[in-house]
Amino acid sequence: MRVNGIDIAYDDQGDGLAVLFVHGHPFDRSLWRPQAEHLRARYRVIVPDLRGYGETTVVPGTTPLGVFADDLVGLLDGLGLDRVVLCGLSLGGQIVMELHRAHPSRVRALVLADTFPEGETPEGREMRYGMAERLVREGMGPYADEVLDKMISPRNVVALPDVADHVLRMMRGTSPEGAAAALRGRAERPDYVDSLARTTVPALVVVGEEDEYTPVAVAEKMHSIIPGSTLAVIPGAGHLPNLERPEEFNDALERFLATV
C-alpha cells in the first residue's frame, strides 16, 4: 500500500477484532508469524514491515518514531480501520507508545512486549548514533552475530536452532540504511511515561523472564505506571518471547484479547 510516499508491505488476515502487530529492530513482519498463524482464525491480524525494514521502502537518514507511527495510521486509514489493538515489541513497542500518545483515538488496547517508555539518555543517544554509523559501514552481519544471544536467551540459541536461524536471517536481511535511520530516530525519542500513566484503554505488558535488554524489573515498573494493566512474564525466554515461547506468549495474548 502506498502511504506517506512509501510502499508498505503488510499481511492482512482473518476477521473480527483488529490487532496490528509492530515488529522491533532489526527485524521484519515475519517476527510475528507464530502469532498471525495462531490468531487469524478468530481475529483480524495486520502485520506490516516498518519503513526501512523487510519489503517496505528504505528511506536513508533519520526516521523519527512519529514517522513510523504516522505510517501505521496511514495504513489503518487505507484499510478503513478506526480503532485497533496495538501490539509492539521492543522498538515496535515504543512506536506503539508514540502512536498512542499522538493518536489516542485510534487505540482500542495496548500490548507492550519487551520494551520501555523512558526517553533516551545522553549515553544511549551517543550509542545509537554510533551504532547507526557502524551498521552503514560494516553491514548487518557482524552486528547480527554479536547480538543473537541477547535477542534470544543463550540457551535458546542452542536449544531452538530454527528460531536462532530465523532471528539471524531477519537481522542479516535488514537494510543497513533502514536500520541506521531507525536508530537515529530512536535516539531522539521522547518520554512516554506521562501518556501511559493517563491511558484509559486496556493494556498488557509482556516480558521474557531472561530478557537482558528489558529485564523483568523494567516491565514491572511499566506495569505499575499503566492504570489497570496486566503483566505476563514468559519463562524460558529472552528478548523475543513470542518466538522463543510462542505457546505461552499466545496464551497470554489471547487471554488479554478476550477481555477487550
Rank of each mutant, 00 (worst) to 15 (best):
V107C: 09
M131E: 13
H100M: 15
R106D: 07
D114N: 12
T121F: 03
Y129L: 15
A132T: 03
E120N: 11
E126N: 06
V111H: 01
R108S: 14
E120H: 05
I95L: 11
F116V: 04
E120L: 02
L110I: 10
H103V: 05
F116M: 14
A113H: 02
E98P: 15
P122L: 09
R106S: 07
H100V: 11
V111Y: 02
R128V: 04
E98N: 14
R106T: 07
G124F: 00
H103M: 11
S105W: 05
A102N: 05
V111N: 00
E126K: 05
I95W: 00
E98G: 03
P117L: 01
Y129M: 10
E126Y: 01
H103I: 02
G119N: 10
G124M: 03
D114M: 02
R125P: 04
G119F: 11
H100G: 04
L112V: 03
A109Y: 03
E118K: 14
G130Q: 08
R125M: 13
M127T: 11
E123N: 10
G130S: 10
V111D: 03
H103G: 08
L99E: 04
I95A: 06
E120Q: 13
A109S: 07
G119Y: 09
R125S: 13
V96W: 02
V107A: 04
R128L: 14
R125N: 07
M131G: 08
V111C: 07
R101I: 08
S105Q: 10
F116D: 03
G130F: 13
M131Y: 08
